[in-house]
Simulated scan of single mutants.
Amino acid sequence: MKLTLYQVDAFTDKLFGGNPAAVIPLQEWISDELMQQLALENNLSETVFFVPAGGTDEYDFHIRWFTPAAEINLCGHATLASAWVLYHILGYEKPTIRFHCLSGLLTISRQGDIISMDFPAWKPQPLKDFPADLAVALGFVPFVNVYKYRDFLVELENEEAVRNCQPDFVRLKRMGEKAIITARGVEVDFVSRFFAPIVGIDEDPVTGSAHSQLIPYWAEKLGKTNLRAKQLSRRGGDLWCDYLGERVTIAGKCVFFMKGEINLK
């Protein structure tokens, strides 16, 4: 059996920027074990697989995402990369793409070279008490607020504090948690970084699912629903965001890197 793999840099307009995703289109599902092995072999933050839905008018494709260590329930950059492959390589011509996933229905559209994703809004809740190890794991950087939905969301004093934070990934992994750090931006509305050693990713370059939590937080804090965001990883990423109440839209650009063939004997 042979599979085609596309590697796409998402949330960027520059090669070697954004977050690289391995995209493997399928006609039917292969085993979970094999998908996990392929994700480990690719050794990117996510490898994404999708298959045609067939026999339903509710959505167009089923989609699943794997880190090198585990399957996850939502991934923005690999969804963006999948949509780019469908639109630009596989000849998909409908105005929207409807993906069905573990987090429900995701609707994708495009305007020019910007692809927009309709994602769930995960509004984080304030935490009065949080593990003391969180401060240690984040290098004792001063906290402004600590919130949580799926992940810890920690607001820091400013963009420089986010940029310079040096986490203890071993301790964070031992806690069994993922963490977002964020602050008001200098040139954009907010900046962030995302750490997930528990699923094999010390720092994710650009994280759509984190913005499902960040957008409601900053929309309420800044009193605006249209937001520009930047993720301050080494590769960096740019996102256009909108808060719609129960949903958010996360938009960005993609750059194609390579096409390959996987030979499974």
Results as ranks from 00 to 15, higher is better:
residue 41 E to P: 05
residue 42 N to T: 01
residue 42 N to R: 04
residue 30 I to M: 03
residue 17 G to W: 05
residue 54 G to N: 11
residue 41 E to T: 02
residue 49 F to C: 00
residue 36 Q to A: 04
residue 36 Q to I: 01
residue 54 G to Y: 12
residue 18 G to A: 11
residue 23 V to A: 14
residue 40 L to G: 12
residue 32 D to R: 09
residue 26 L to F: 15
residue 42 N to V: 01
residue 42 N to H: 14
residue 38 L to A: 06
residue 23 V to E: 13
residue 49 F to K: 00
residue 38 L to K: 00
residue 51 V to I: 07
residue 32 D to Y: 15
residue 22 A to I: 00
residue 21 A to F: 09
residue 19 N to L: 06
residue 41 E to W: 05
residue 20 P to T: 02
residue 31 S to V: 13
residue 28 E to A: 06
residue 22 A to E: 07
residue 30 I to N: 07
residue 23 V to C: 12
residue 49 F to T: 00
residue 35 M to Q: 08
residue 18 G to V: 07
residue 40 L to P: 02
residue 35 M to D: 10
residue 17 G to A: 10
residue 36 Q to G: 08
residue 27 Q to Y: 11
residue 38 L to Y: 05
residue 53 A to S: 14
residue 17 G to V: 05
residue 37 Q to H: 05
residue 48 V to G: 14
residue 36 Q to H: 02
residue 21 A to Y: 07
residue 21 A to P: 12
residue 37 Q to T: 03
residue 35 M to F: 02
residue 50 F to K: 01
residue 54 G to W: 10
residue 31 S to K: 11
residue 23 V to G: 15
residue 44 L to V: 01
residue 32 D to L: 10
residue 50 F to V: 02
residue 43 N to L: 00
residue 20 P to L: 02
residue 17 G to R: 02
residue 47 T to N: 05
residue 53 A to E: 06
residue 32 D to N: 13
residue 37 Q to L: 02
residue 51 V to P: 12
residue 42 N to Y: 14
residue 37 Q to V: 01
residue 46 E to H: 14
residue 46 E to S: 10
residue 18 G to Y: 13
residue 23 V to L: 12
residue 41 E to L: 03
residue 28 E to W: 10
residue 51 V to Q: 03
residue 40 L to T: 04
residue 31 S to Q: 12
residue 44 L to P: 03
residue 28 E to D: 12
residue 26 L to T: 04
residue 29 W to R: 09
residue 43 N to A: 07
residue 55 G to V: 10
residue 46 E to L: 14
